[in-house]
Design a protein around this nucleic acid. Structure first.
Length: 984
RNA sequence: GCCGCUGUGAUGAAAUUGGCAAACAUGCGGGACUCAAAAUCCCGUGGGGGCAACCCCUUGUCGGUUCAAGUCCGACCAGCGGCACCA
C-alpha cells in the first residue's frame, strides 16, 4: 500500500463537498467562529504560493477550532473587479467581462486543490451584479448622509493606469499598483469623508488585538500632531484681514519672522489686488502646481519661494511687521496651508531664511537632558542649579581646539566650570582655561548664548541643572603655566580638529556649543524661552499653551489622514450610482443642499449595471470609457425628469473589498432585503473571530474596512464598530531571498508542487518553514523532509491499524489506560498540549516539530503503541494534513465500528484530544548541578527532591565533588531544576 | 531624519519567558542494503584542545546587572519595514 496523495486527496475533497463537511448552519450554530482570510483578487498568474500559505495558515487554525466544537465558517470568494484584472485584459486583448470567468474558474480550481475547509456555498465575487448592487447601495447611503462628496483639488494621477488614485495608493510618489511616478492633476472627484472618523480610528487601535507593526503603520498614517491655530493680521494699502496658521510650536511664536503660504492657498487669489508683484507670484505658483510630487521631493532641500510684496503680516506676540512668502515647501493639503516660519527653531525655515536673508531670532535656549550613562539623571534626587561656562578654545596658530578627557568618569568635554560669585562669565571662563589647560592669553571672540543641561554629576554625586554660557576664545599665543597636580588628576587635555572634536565630545550640550559656533543648524528641541517678552524663562512645553492663550489661538490636533478619493476613470468596477442634472443645478435643487444638481440613483433602480463595452481602454483624459457610451449615461433626472447625465466614473476597487466580510454569512439569506446583510445572522456571526492577511494592506483595506464598519455602526446597521477585533499579519514568502514577481520570473506556482508532492505535503512545508507571522524563503529541498515524515506516518499507521489492532482487542494499554509513568503516555499528553497551544498562537512550525518528535518516539517503542494512540496522533495531525489523516482515520474507524457502519463521519468533525495535566508531570526530572553557574552534571532525580537531598547527591558526584569545598559561599536551589554552588 | 522590528551552526529555525544554547528539519560526511543507482535505515555533524574520561570557547560588536544572560539594561554596527519639506 503506497502513499499516493493524488488519489486520496481528490477522493476526500469530493467526499467533503458532497457531505457538506465544512458548511456551518448559520441559523442554529451554537458556537459560531468566523475564520477569515484576506480576500484574494483574481489574477492571471493564478494562486501565488504566498497566498496558499496564508490560506492554509488560516485553515489550520479553523480546523483546530472546528474540532474543538466551534461552528467554523471559512468563506471564500474573489475580488474580481479592479485595475489588476482590467490591465491584464488590456494587455492580452481579452475582455474582463468574458475572460474573467476563465480566470475565476482557474482560481477556484487551485483553491480547491489545497484541501481547505472552505464553505463553498457562500462564495461571492465582487463583479457579480448581486454583490455590487450593495456596493452601490453603500455609496448611496454615504451620499445621503453627507459622507460622500465631490471636490475639485490637486489629486494623484497615475499616467500609466490613466486614473486618479487615493493617497493610500501612492507609495513614495509612485503608483501602488504599477510603480509609475504619480503626477498631480487638478480635477473634481468623489471622496468619502473618512476624516470624520480620524480620532476614533486612532483611539480604537488601543482596543483591538492586532499585530503591533500593523497598528503602528495605521498610527503613522493617521499622523496626529497637536498644536495651535494662530491668526496673524494682514495689512496692506487696500484692506486689512487675517491669515491663520497651524503650528506645533506656539512657544516659538516670538521668533516667527515671516509667514509662508502654499502655492495652492486661496489667499493669493483673494489678495490679488494687494500683491504688487502678482505676475511674478502667479508664475511661481503655476510652476509649483504642475511639479510632480516626486520632483518636489527630489528637489530636496533647495527651497524656493517668492515674497508677496505690498502686504505684511503682524506677529500677534510682539506686533512686529513681518513678510509673507509663497513657497512650495509648504503643502496646501495640510493644516491651514500656511505656516509661521521660525528660522531659529525649524530646519526648513532655517534653510529658507538663510537663502532669502530673513531675520533669525533665537527664542528657545536649549535644554539637554543626559540620556546615556555616565550621568543619567537620578529620579530620586533634587536638582542643584548652577551657572556655568562652556568654552571653545582655539589654538593660537592652527585649526585646532581643546578637548578634555575626564579621568574620574567617562566624560569628554570642552573647557567647562562654574561661575563664582562676583565673576563675569568671561572671567570664569578665563580662570578655567588657565586652571584646566594652563593657557594664559585667551581672547573672547563670541558669546554663543546659554545652553542648559540636566545630568547627574558622578564625581560630586548630585543632579545638576546647569545654565552654561557658551563662549568662544582664541588663544593669542602659546604662553602657558604649569597645571596643578589636583587638576592633572581630573583630566587629560588634547587638541582636535573640529570634526574630531565633535566626535570626541560626549555631552550633547557641548556638541551643540560647537554646532552654534558655525550657526549651521536650527535648534528644534524643547528648552527655556528667551527674547519672548513676559514668557522669557518659561519651559517650552508650558509656554506652548500660555502663548496660545495670550494671542487667542486655539489648541487643536491635525492629522495626516485625508479623505478617501474614490472615483476612478476606468471601466472594470461598479459604476458610481449618481446622476447629475444641469437643470436642477441651475435652479439650485439637489438631494444635498451643498451639492446642487446631484441625485443618488433611487435604491429600487440598483444595481446600475456595468454595460458591456467593447473598447474598454482608459481614455487618458479625466473621463472613464463609459463617458462615450450614450446608452449608459443618458438618463432622466429622478427629480425633474428632464434629460440628465449619469456619473461615468467607477468606484475604487478597495470599496468592493471594504465590506465583503459583512456579506459572506448572508449571501443566501439577504438577497432581497433592505440592507446587504441579514441582521439576525450578522448578530450571531460578526465581528470576525480572527482575521489573517498581509501587512501590505495596513493602511488600505484595513483602514477602509474599519471606516465603513464605524459608519454602519453609527447608522445602527451594525452593533460593533471594529470589524476585526483580532488580526494577524502573516509573513512574506520569498524565493531566493527576493520578493516573488512575474517580472523576475521567480514565481512559485503551487500547482506543480501539489501535483508532485500532494497538497498535504505542500501545506505542511509552508507551515513548517517558519513561524507563520514571520515568512521565509521557499526552498524545493525543504519539502523532502515533510514528504518523508508523511510516508512514515502512512507506513506506521498501517502497521498499527492493519496488523496490530486486530490482535490487541483486549489489550487495555492505549490512551488513558496506561500506568501513570508510562513514557509513551507522557509524551502523548505533552504533545497534545504543545500542538494545541502552538496552533492557537499560530506557531505551526513548532507544532509540526512536536508531531515529528512524537513519531520518532513512537516508532522507537513500537510494542507499546496501540490503535487508540495512533488515532490521537492522526487527530493532532489533521489540521495540517487533512487528506492523509482522513484516509487513515476512515481505515481505522471502519474496523472499530464494524462492517455494519455506513455513516460517514469525518475526522475533521471529531473532538480534539484533551490532555490530562496529571500525566504530563513526570516522576523523574533532569536536574542540573552547577558550580559558579556552570553546568557540571545533569542527572535524573525524583521530582520534588529537597535541597538537602540534592546537596547530598552532589557530594557523591565526581565532577562536582572535586570542585566543591566543604563550605560553598552560597547555594542557589531551584526545585526540580537546578542547584548552583557558588565558590569563591 | 523620526518611529518600529530583527540579528543564533553550512541552511530554515528551537529554546516552558532569566536556568543544559542549537530541539525539529534540510544539507553534508560515513556506514548498512544493492551488481549498481535511487529510495530506505543506522551513526556523526557549532568551533578549538586532549589517547581518553573530559576541558575551554561560542547567540552581530562592546560594556553592565545577576549565583546564572540568546533572553534584562546601556552604547554601537548591520539588515528589514512604516512615515517623511506634515509646520
Amino acid at each position: 500500500m503506497r502513499y499516493d496523495p493524488k488519489k486520496i486527496e481528490a477522493r476526500w475533497q469530493k467526499k467533503w463537498l458532497a457531505d457538506k463537511t465544512y458548511e456551518p448552519d448559520f441559523k442554529h450554530a451554537k458556537k459560531p467562529f468566523y475564520n477569515l482570510m484576506m480576500f484574494p483578487y483574481t489574477s492571471a498568474e493564478g494562486l501565488h504560493i504566498g497566498g496558499m500559505r496564508t490560506f492554509t495558515g488560516v485553515d489550520i487554525y479553523g480546523r483546530l477550532k472546528r474540532m474543538q466544537g466551534y461552528d467554523v465558517f471559512e468563506p471564500i470568494g474573489l475580488d474580481a473587479f479592479g485595475i489588476h484584472s482590467e490591465n491584464y485584459g488590456l494587455k492580452t486583448g481579452r475582455h474582463p467581462m468574458t475572460y474573467g470567468r476563465v480566470l475565476e474558474k482557474n482560481f477556484y480550481r487551485q483553491l480547491a486543490m489545497m484541501g481547505n475547509g472552505f464553505a463553498w456555498d457562500e462564495r461571492l465575487e465582487t463583479n457579480d451584479a448581486e454583490y455590487y448592487r450593495w456596493t452601490q447601495w453603500i455609496f448611496v447611503q454615504m451620499f445621503k448622509r453627507g459622507l460622500a462628496y465631490r471636490k475639485k483639488q490637486a489629486v494623484n494621477w497615475c499616467p500609466s493606469c490613466k486614473t486618479v488614485l487615493a493617497d493610500e495608493q501612492v507609495i513614495a510618489g509612485e503608483c501602488e499598483r504599477c510603480g509609475s511616478v504619480v503626477v498631480k492633476k487638478e480635477l473634481e472627484q468623489w471622496f468619502f469623508r473618512i476624516t470624520q472618523y480620524t480620532e476614533r480610528l486612532l483611539q480604537n487601535l488601543e482596543k483591538i488585538d492586532w499585530s503591533e507593526r500593523v497598528k503602528i503603520a495605521q498610527k503613522n498614517w493617521i499622523g496626529k500632531s497637536e498644536g495651535a491655530m494662530i491668526k496673524f493680521k494682514v495689512k496692506s494699502d487696500v484692506k486689512n484681514d487675517d491669515i491663520e496658521v497651524f503650528t506645533t510650536r506656539p512657544d516659538t511664536l516670538f521668533g516667527a519672522t515671516y509667514l509662508v503660504v502654499a502655492p495652492e492657498h486661496e489667499f493669493i487669489e483673494s489678495h490679488k489686488s494687494q500683491i504688487t508683484n502678482y505676475v511674478q507670484v502667479v508664475a511661481y505658483v503655476k510652476k509649483a502646481r504642475t511639479k510632480a510630487e516626486a520632483d518636489r521631493i527630489a528637489a530636496g532641500k533647495e527651497k524656493t519661494g517668492v515674497e508677496l510684496k505690498g502686504i505684511k503680516a503682524i506677529n500677534p506676540a510682539n506686533n512686529e511687521e513681518i513678510s509673507i512668502f509663497v513657497a512650495d515647501y509648504v503643502l496646501g493639503s495640510y493644516g491651514t496651508g500656511a505656516i509661521m516660519a521660525v528660522p531659529a527653531h525649524d530646519e526648513r525655515d532655517f534653510a529658507f531664511a538663510k537663502k532669502y536673508k530673513i531675520a533669525n531670532r533665537q527664542v528657545i535656549e536649549p535644554v539637554f537632558i543626559q540620556t546615556t550613562e555616565p550621568g543619567i539623571v537620578r529620579k530620586d534626587l533634587p536638582f542643584e542649579h548652577r551657572d556655568a561656562i562652556i568654552a571653545i578654545v582655539k589654538h593660537w596658530s592652527e585649526e585646532k581646539y581643546i578637548g578634555l578627557k575626564w579621568k574620574t568618569v567617562a566624560w569628554q568635554t570642552l573647557v567647562t566650570g562654574g561661575i563664582e560669585k562676583g565673576q563675569t562669565a568671561e572671567e570664569a571662563a578665563k580662570a578655567e582655561i588657565r586652571e584646566e589647560a594652563g593657557f594664559l592669553h585667551p581672547k573672547l571672540i563670541a558669546d554663543l548664548g546659554i545652553i542648559h543641561g540636566k545630568w547627574y554629576h558622578v564625581p560630586k554625586q548630585v543632579n545638576r541643572f546647569g545654565h552654561a554660557r557658551a563662549l568662544y576664545f582664541e588663544l593669542q599665543d602659546g604662553a602657558r603655566e604649569a597645571i596643578s597636580e589636583a587638576e592633572q588628576k581630573n583630566h587629560d587635555m588634547f587638541w582636535f580638529s573640529k570634526e574630531d572634536l565633535e566626535k570626541f565630545l560626549s555631552p550633547e550640550s557641548h556638541r551643540w556649543a560647537l554646532a552654534i559656533l558655525d550657526r549651521s543648524r536650527a535648534y528644534t528641541g524643547d528648552g527655556i524661552l528667551t527674547h519672548s517678552g513676559s514668557f522669557t524663562g518659561m519651559d517650552s512645553e508650558e509656554a506652548k499653551w500660555e502663548i496660545t492663550k495670550f494671542v487667542r489661538g486655539k489648541r487643536v490636533s491635525q492629522y495626516h489622514l485625508r479623505d478617501w478619493l474614490l472615483s476612478r476613470q476606468r471601466y472594470w468596477g461598479p459604476p458610481i450610482p449618481m446622476i447629475f442634472c444641469e437643470v436642477c443645478k441651475n435652479t439650485g435643487r439637489g438631494e444635498r443642499p451643498e451639492m446642487p444638481g446631484w441625485y443618488a440613483v433611487p435604491e429600487k433602480n440598483l444595481p446600475v449595471k456595468l454595460p458591456f463595452v467593447k473598447d474598454f481602454r482608459p481614455t487618458g483624459t479625466d473621463q472613464s470609457p463609459l463617458a462615450s457610451v450614450a446608452t449608459f449615461y443618458k438618463v432622466r433626472c429622478p427629480k425633474c425628469k428632464k434629460m440628465a447625465r449619469r456619473e461615468t466614473d467607477v468606484s475604487d476597487t478597495f470599496l468592493d473589498s471594504a465590506w465583503y466580510f459583512l456579506r459572506y454569512p448572508s449571501t443566501r439569506s439577504a438577497r432581497s432585503g433592505q440592507v446587504p446583510w441579514d441582521q439576525e445572522i450578522t448578530k450571531k456571526w460578526l465581528p470576525v473571530s480572527i482575521y489573517i492577511g498581509g501587512a501590505e494592506h495596513s493602511v488600505l483595506h484595513l483602514m477602509y474596512s474599519r471606516f465603513l464598519t464605524m459608519a454602519f455602526c453609527d447608522w445602527k446597521l451594525l452593533k460593533f464598530e471594529e470589524p476585526f477585533p483580532k488580526f494577524r499579519a502573516h509573513g512574506l514568502i520569498t524565493k531566493d531571498g527576493a520578493k516573488m514577481s512575474k517580472s523576475k520570473g521567480n514565481v512559485v506556482n503551487p500547482d506543480d508542487y501539489i501535483r508532485a508532492y500532494g497538497a498535504d505535503a505542500v501545506r505542511m512545508y509552508l507551515a513548517f518553514l517558519a513561524p507563520f507571522e514571520q515568512g521565509g524563503d521557499f526552498r524545493d529541498t525543504g519539502i523532502r523532509g515533510i514528504t518523508r515524515f508523511l510516508e512514515r506516518v502512512w507506513k506506521f499507521a498501517h502497521k498499527v491499524i492493519m496488523i496490530r489492532q486486530p490482535a490487541e482487542k483486549n489489550l487495555k494499554r492505549s490512551f488513558g489506560h496506561r500506568p501513570q509513568d508510562d513514557a509513551l503516555q507522557i509524551i502523548l499528553h505533552k504533545t497534545i498540549k504543545k500542538v494545541t497551544e502552538d496552533i492557537e498562537n499560530l506557531q505551526y512550525n513548532t507544532a509540526i516539530s512536536a508531531l515529528m518528535i512524537l513519531l520518532n518516539e513512537v516508532e522507537a517503542s513500537q510494542n507499546a503503541v496501540g490503535a487508540e494512540d495512533i488515532k490521537i496522533f492522526l487527530k493532532l495531525l489533521a489540521p495540517f494534513a487533512p487528506h492523509i489523516t482522513e484516509e487513515l482515520w476512515q481505515k481505522s474507524g471502519n474496523r472499530e465500528l464494524g462492517a455494519g457502519s455506513r455513516k460517514f463521519r469525518s475526522i475533521h468533525r471529531e473532538a480534539w484530544p484533551k490532555y490530562n495535566p496529571r500525566f504530563i508531570q513526570e516522576n523523574m526530572v533532569d536536574f542540573i548541578f552547577q558550580i559558579n553557574g556552570k553546568t557540571r552534571v545533569v542527572i535524573e532525580i525524583k521530582r520534588g527532591s529537597s535541597q538537602q537531598e540534592a546537596t547530598r547527591l552532589a557530594r557523591n558526584l565526581d565532577a562536582v565533588k572535586q570542585r566543591l569545598p566543604s563550605e560553598p559561599t552560597r547555594v542557589i536551589f531551584i526545585p526540580d531544576k537546578l542547584i548552583n554552588f557558588v565558590v569563591q
